[in-house]
Design a protein around this nucleic acid. Structure first.
Length: 401
RNA sequence: GGCGCGAUAGCAAAGCGGUUAUGCCGCGGCCUGCAAAGCCGUUUAGACCAGUUCGACUCUGGUUCGCGCCUCCA
């Protein structure tokens, strides 16, 4: 049985799916207004590894990763480029697909786009208003925004460990007179002139960011599902707000039902010990890095660190990864046989590998087993051992060989 | 300010209350006509201060430093 570090519980827990043998997993994907950088690569590769390992463990996995194709930055960028939003997002979705394919990432089973789920969002917002969790903008000049009333949801803060009191004490929250509470967040934004918009009971507008994931996960995975993943920076406010929206919208007679059983958050990619991000401008796009390094080296670089640890990017580290990976391949050179037969998990190293992967996807430990096996191959020239390396490596696509 | 995470050898990165992590680099051998690859051996650890314990890198408390979230962010 795999163990997963559950952000909600702040500890590793034995993974027990809602339906035996099946896993429903939702991961927050990209906002498509630019090329993906290494931080995005990490999310794609990590959850690809997670879904592959769960499948290799016998689970029937349904993996959903959304595409955010409407938001402020997309609108802004499309205007700057003098192209339509559709043209812009189409271009970058294609670029994302190319990048992820090179990194050996299997396409998620379902990749819903926000703009295709406006109806679902509207009905969820309506339900939230009816149940008293949301309200149209306050004041006489209320301009068609709809807000979520954060203090109406009892569990607000349970994922991020923040209390409303502490959050309000922070001075960084934007004041908006149309809100009842400074911490309330927008579910629906009134359209400004020359912005794309959809009709709604509150006038023309477009969705807030958080509601899309609530609507799309509900549609594809239901009111309750097994795993929800994403980058650490989404823990608050995005995922906290998803919980508030979904659990409130799905409540019956004031009783809420848990939205997600296991929350997984991957660590950041850093540059010089700082988070790689667009706003800091210290990012490297996947395609830039792939000009210099093989995709498999990049994938190895990502997976040789534990998914929750910070990962420092530098050429030196990529060079190191390249050499290490070469050792693995050199050992396998010319010794390929029988790599299609099933793995005997009783076998000692296979068991160690499985134990590592089942321990919250400990890929560094799993790689150590692979390197031990490579050493054995070098000594014995055993084709059987070489085949085992290949078969094990393939389970989470730790190596492609 | 609030909340949280981390500190492991030259670099990177894991597990573990007592037994070689692993990879790269360095050093010494072996092998080879030379090299490459490989094999064997080997030098560098656990920020600091206390405590618990027969024994702590591993548990507890404190200190220092670094990072993240609290605003868009993977």
């Amino acid at each position: 049985m795999p163990k997963i570090y559950n952000t909600l519980a702040r500890e590793k827990q034995v993974f027990t799916p809602i339906v035996a043998g099946k896993v429903s997993m939702y991961v927050c994907g990209m906002t498509v207004y630019d090329y993906c950088h290494l931080g995005h690569a990490r999310v794609m590769v990590v959850f690809d590894m997670v879904s592959r390992w769960l499948r290799a463990s016998g689970y029937d996995v349904t993996y959903v990763r959304n595409i955010t194709d409407i938001d402020d930055k997309i609108i802004k960028r499309a205007n700057e480029n003098n192209e339509t939003i559709g043209q812009l997002t189409q271009r970058f979705i294609q670029a994302m697909d190319e990048d992820s394919a090179k990194l050996g990432v299997i396409r998620p089973d379902i990749e819903p786009k926000a703009t295709e789920f406006i109806d679902g969002m509207l009905s969820m917002i309506t339900a939230l208003i009816e149940k008293g969790f949301a309200y149209p903008a306050q004041g006489k000049d209320g301009h068609g925004d709809v807000f979520y009333a954060v203090n109406s949801f009892e569990g607000y803060g349970k994922l991020s460990g923040k209390s409303l009191e502490d959050l309000r004490a922070g001075e960084r929250v934007e004041v908006d007179s149309h809100k009842k509470d400074a911490m309330d967040f927008v579910l629906w934004k009134a359209a400004k002139p020359n912005e794309p918009s959809w009709d709604s009971p509150w006038g023309k507008g477009r969705p807030g960011w958080h509601i899309e994931c609530s609507a799309m996960s509900e549609h594809h995975l239901g009111h309750q599902f097994d795993i929800h993943g994403g980058g650490q920076d989404l823990q608050f406010p995005h995922h906290e707000n998803e919980i508030a929206q979904s659990e409130a919208a799905h409540s019956h007679d004031g009783k809420t039902c848990q939205m997600v059983n296991y929350w997984m958050h991957n660590g950041f990619v850093r540059v010089d010990d700082e988070k790689m991000s667009k706003s800091l401008g210290n990012f490297f796009t996947i395609r830039t890095v792939l000009e210099k390094y093989d995709a498999e080296v990049v994938r190895f670089f990502i997976l040789r660190a534990h998914y929750r640890s910070p990962l420092n990017y530098s050429d030196q580290h990529l060079d190191d990864a390249k050499l290490a990976l070469t050792r693995l391949y050199t050992a396998l050179r010319g010794l390929s046989v029988d790599d299609d037969i099933a793995i005997d998990w009783q076998q000692s190293q296979a068991a160690s590998f499985k134990a590592a992967m089942d321990d919250d996807f400990n890929t560094p430990e799993a790689f150590a087993v692979l390197f031990d096996l490579a050493n054995e191959v070098n000594k014995t020239k055993s084709a059987e051992t070489a085949a085992l390396v290949k078969r094990l490596g393939r389970t989470g696509r730790l190596v492609a060989a």
